[in-house]
Each structure stands twice: as C-alpha cells, then as structure tokens.
Design a protein around this nucleic acid. Structure first.
Lengths: 125, 125
DNA sequence: CTGTATCCGAATAGATACTG
DNA sequence: CAGTATCTATTCGGATACAG
C-alpha cells in the first residue's frame, strides 16, 4: 500500500469539484433548488452573472445530468430549467458546505487579516 | 424581499469554494488529515503537484487559518504542516463530497456520454 | 530540504455585438 | 426571450532556474 494512495481517494474530490468549482455552478444549482424556473429568471436571481457564463454553466450542468432543459417553441421562446433527481442529491452536500461557511467564515476572515498584518509589520524586526 | 436574495445566501457557497476550488487545496487538506507531516512528504503523497503549486496552496491554506506551519531551523531545514482545529472542521464536509462523488459519479459520466452522443448523431433527424 | 522568482502557454471570465 | 460568436483581460498552472 503506497502512500500515494491518496491520489486515488482524492480522485473523488476532483470529480465533485470538477462539477461545482466553476464559480457559478453552485449558484445556479441553488437557484434551481426552489423548482422549475426559466432562463431569464435564473439570470435575474443570480446578480452579476453574464449571459455567456449562465449559458455555459447551464450547458455543463445539463451535460452532467444535473439539470434538465425544456424548450417551449413559442414566440418568444420559453426555456425552463429544472433540477434532475440526480441534481437534487447534491442539495444536502451544498447545504452542508453553506453551513460550514456561515459558521466558520468569520474565523477565516480574521485569520486572513492577522496573516496579512504579520506580512510587513513585524516580520523581521 | 427581492428575488436576488439568492446572492446573499449564495455568498456562503462562494466562500467555501473560494477555499477549496483550487484543484490542489482539497488534496492537500486530505493529505494532512492523517496528522502532521512535512513539506516533502506532502509533495510525495500528492503525485503530480509542482513545488510552486504546493507552496502556493499551503500559503493560502495557512492564510485562511486552516493549516499551521512550523519551521525547525536546522540544516537542512524542516518544515511541518498540520491541520488546525478549524481545518479539521472541514473534514466532514469533504467526506460528504467524496461520498457523493463515489456514489453518483458513474451516473454523471453516463449522462455525459449520452449528451455527447446526441450532439452530432441524432440531433435533427 | 524548502522554498522564491520568472517566463510562458492554457484556461477562465467578462464585455459587446449579433441572431432566430 | 434565449441564446451564439468574438475579442480581450485576468488568472492558473507547469517548467525552469536560483537561494538560504
């Protein structure tokens, strides 16, 4: 048993991160948690996302089978997005992450401030 | 109550992802889960990481207060890294992510294959 | 042994303009 | 409304060389 076994175990992490490390993926999934909504609605909810990034993120999530896309060919067209059952299984994980963040992020921010202070202030003396 | 409330809630996600979306951060944390180890040992365990990325990742985790660094000024120098208590609180989250991945990743891969097939094969028909 | 510094190519992300 | 296409700026990551 090599110590580099870690790479194998870590492989799993990579897979998840591959899915939701895209800065917007998590946000989109969270927006869809409430149910089926359409493109423009997602865009409205996620303030700051560009058309390009939203479309790109949705395509990716669709490709991964986490989100389903339903086109109603009217004029103007309507496109609805929904979380698939697979997508829903991700919600508990994301809830946990969110909780970790709200519980511990203030500590992280403090740590950062301290670290950044030590950088130039009392380094060599 | 605006619909864009999501940005506020979603903010939490961004914070966590900010920490472990760096491709190597999760791996490093996982490597440190077993206890205190030194620089070269981490590098050995995470196959494929470059010095630059390892150092960069460690600095970042240290700055976030997730990892502590202890230098023993000998010749040659010894530098040990440990997960801080804060860093340890992240472990359950990562375990959950890992489990999700091992349970569902095969489905994701299948979804991808199907999606990619539909691209050029039976698109219009 | 444990880093730092620099260069370069690749991937990301945003802005903008255009289309069915 | 819901995209696609293109151009650009920034960031990321790897390789290499050098230092305490």
């Amino acid at each position: 048993m090599k110590p580099s076994d870690i790479s194998i175990t870590a492989c799993s992490y990579s897979h998840v991160l591959e899915i939701l490390s895209n800065k917007w993926s998590a946000l989109v999934i969270y927006a869809l948690e409430s149910g089926t909504i359409r493109y423009s609605e997602i865009k409205r909810r996620i303030d700051g996302i560009s058309q390009k990034m939203l479309t790109q993120t949705l395509r990716q999530l669709e490709r991964d089978g986490l989100v389903s896309r339903k086109v109603t060919p009217s004029v103007p067209p309507i496109v609805d997005y929904t979380l698939t059952p697979l997508g829903n299984t991700l919600i508990p994980c994301m809830k946990m992450l969110k909780e970790w963040a709200s519980e511990h992020y203030s500590v992280v921010r403090q740590a950062r401030e301290q670290y950044d202070l030590g950088e130039d202030g009392a380094a060599v003396r």
